[in-house]
Write a protein that binds this DNA or RNA. Structure first.
Lengths: 147, 147
DNA sequence: AGCATTCCAGAGTCCTTTTTCTGATTCGAG
DNA sequence: CTCGAATCAGAAAAAGGACTCTGGAATGCT
């Protein structure tokens, strides 16, 4: 995929959180999504620092969204996870690629970046909630037409 | 960047090879491009197995292209380095994303993939030869508008 | 034949990413 | 207020990619 696995885990976890202001446990989320539990907890902590989640310790604690899910964009989550310059740089890694010395894929990749960035700022966590978020083992289900 | 660093090194090395059928040494290529020598040599060996380069051992030996540079596409090199399924999979890593359960970025990312794939099969190594292929230290040159 | 040159193949090291473990903090019951 | 369970949070370990090193095999020159 285009992003790191941690970013994918973050998006899946956010989409699985309830809207009603109740707190969810990292452990429960992990088992529900079939993801590595402590690792997911660490990712959720990062989202707390990015002001996407808030957490409460102790009994009755857990994680919940700071805003309604339709006010959290996918692009915001990606930026929090991958850093703001995730989509920067030449697609082929050419150091001199730029406005004065564009590589052959420069323009095509530039158009792609704006297209993806736009889609990511338009899509919100709510748009993800209808999907099947569980882990899928290799060999199960249909593989074709993914993307 | 979108691809691994090894893929970027491969493309740079191919673009730096001469067209006249003479053999170039991995060591010379590496110092010219300011890349790690032994690692570049290993990458070139892989390109030999992919039938993009041919090699001769011993004095007067080295690496050269098997075909003129305009008959080697960028997509071919990427496939050889990253595997044929490099662009497959959901952009966000959602396991269930597919034709029946598309994620919100499914269509946008699908269009992007065909666009990039098309550009990569149209662009050839010759198109890369005009560029400055050397390594650029952090902080040098202009950073903006890259891609 | 012998030697220098160069590619080739594998194991080994370092660093980043991914995953797990232990401890610090909070809340509620008695 | 104290005790204990629940939970987050940061440190520690494992895995994978990037990079290096060493020895071996092939080639050409003398």
């Amino acid at each position: 995929m285009l992003f790191s696995t941690a970013t994918g885990y973050a998006l899946r976890a956010l989409a699985a959180l309830p809207e009603d202001g109740t707190f969810s446990l990292a452990k429960n989320l992990a088992s529900k999504l079939e993801l590595p539990g402590p690792y997911l907890a660490k990712i959720l902590q990062g989202l707390v620092q990015a002001d996407i989640l808030e957490s409460v310790r102790g009994p009755k604690g857990g994680f919940r969204l700071t805003r309604p899910s339709h006010r959290i964009t996918v692009g915001e989550v990606v930026a929090a996870m991958e850093g703001p310059e995730a989509m920067e740089g030449c697609i082929m890694g050419f150091p001199a690629c730029g406005g004065d010395h564009p590589c052959p894929l420069h323009d095509a990749w530039g158009a792609v970046k704006t297209q993806v960035t736009t889609s990511m700022t338009e899509a919100t966590i709510r748009d993800l909630q209808l999907m099947d978020l569980r882990h899928q083992k290799e060999g199960e289900g249909k593989r074709s037409n993914r993307g």
